[in-house]
Each structure stands twice: as structure tokens, then as C-alpha cells.
């Protein structure tokens, strides 16, 4: 046969079929603080501290943000949110509750550790740790297995401008009904 044996759609069709994602899984370890990391005896104290410092430094930049303290506390618990102002007005972000580092091919990736937040809404009725993109990582600290993308948490940046792309299409769009930028 010279064609695909099956074709399917997940998102485009009105009745999506659910598939299990086959993304590679890797080991990750979650620690509440440096002391728990040192007690785990997998990293030296210096590595534990370097990993913590990196996560802490990333925390304010990447944490999920809310415009209302109430919404933030609904997700992360009463008294577990802090106010920040990074040029976009007062926003609320959860406190960093733990940090995680991935083990890629068995080696600890402690210089790319990331902050975690304890969410009460991402795991059904009980709580668990989520990354800065809100993606569940593990219910408790210690060793776990996560999809690789969960450990590559999205980073945030301060956007200064939009609409810097797309102008050629409108400039050339008068032709042929402006159907497509493709070919």
C-alpha cells in the first residue's frame, strides 16, 4: 500500500480521539529546601545550594501570575501568595514551595533547576507540586518520573512590543483575495 494505514485527528475534528502522549519520560527529584536535598545524599551540599539558588532566582520571573490575590490563593492556598510589580502593575504569584531538577541520561541537571508551587486545584481534591507553567510534576517531594517538557518549564519575559510580524502579508494581501501566505 502506498498510503498511510490510518489517518486521524485529535484537535481538528469535532469528536477528538484521545491518545496517550509518547513523550520521553525522565527522572526528576523534588526537594522542599537545601536541607532535604543534602539529606537525600545524591548531590553535594554545594550542588544542592546551586540548584536552590537557580530556582529561587528564576522564581519571580517565571511564576504563574494573577491580577487578584483571591484567585491566586484559591489555587495555592491562603497566605501562600505574594505581590510583585514588574512594570505591569501589582500582580500576585505563589510562594516557591519546592525546587526540582531533572536527571538527563542519569546525570543531575542541577544548574537548570526550577521552582515549584504547591497547588490545591491541579490534582483534583488533594494538593501537589506544579511547575511555573501550571503543569503537574509530582504530589510529593522525592524522586519521580516526568515528561521532559514538564522539566523544561516555560520562561517568561517582559514584552515591549507586538505586531512586528505580519505586515508583508497585509501589504501584499490585496492580490488574489489575500487568501494565503503559503504557496
Amino acid at each position: 500500500m502506498k498510503r498511510s494505514s490510518t489517518v486521524r485527528l485529535l484537535l481538528m475534528s469535532t469528536a477528538p480521539v484521545l491518545l496517550t502522549a509518547c513523550e520521553p519520560q525522565e527522572e526528576a527529584v523534588l526537594y522542599k529546601d537545601v536541607a532535604e536535598c543534602v539529606a537525600g545524599a545524591r548531590l553535594t551540599e554545594d550542588q544542592c545550594k546551586a540548584a536552590f539558588d537557580h530556582a529561587k532566582a528564576e522564581h519571580e520571573r517565571v511564576a504563574p501570575r494573577y491580577t487578584s490575590q483571591n484567585d491566586c490563593e484559591t489555587d495555592f492556598g491562603s497566605g501562600k501568595c505574594q505581590a510583585v510589580n514588574q512594570g505591569a502593575g501589582i500582580q500576585f504569584i505563589p510562594l516557591m514551595a519546592a525546587y526540582a531538577l531533572g536527571y538527563y541520561a542519569g546525570r543531575p541537571n542541577y544548574y537548570q533547576s526550577q521552582p515549584l508551587y504547591y497547588s490545591y486545584t491541579s490534582y483534583g481534591s488533594s494538593g501537589g507540586f506544579v511547575n511555573s507553567g501550571g503543569q503537574p510534576v509530582s504530589r510529593s517531594t522525592g524522586s519521580t518520573t516526568v515528561s521532559r517538557s514538564a522539566m523544561a518549564a516555560p520562561t517568561r519575559a517582559v514584552t515591549m512590543s507586538r505586531s512586528g510580524f505580519g505586515s508583508s502579508s497585509s501589504a501584499k494581501g490585496g492580490w488574489g483575495g489575500g487568501r494565503s501566505s503559503g504557496s
Partner: peptide, 8 residues
């Protein structure tokens, strides 16, 4: 495409 932003 038009919504893509550029950061500082």
C-alpha cells in the same frame, strides 16, 4: 503571526 511579541 501578528500577535507575537518581542521582549526587552
Amino acid at each position: 503571526i501578528e500577535d507575537i511579541g518581542l521582549s526587552t
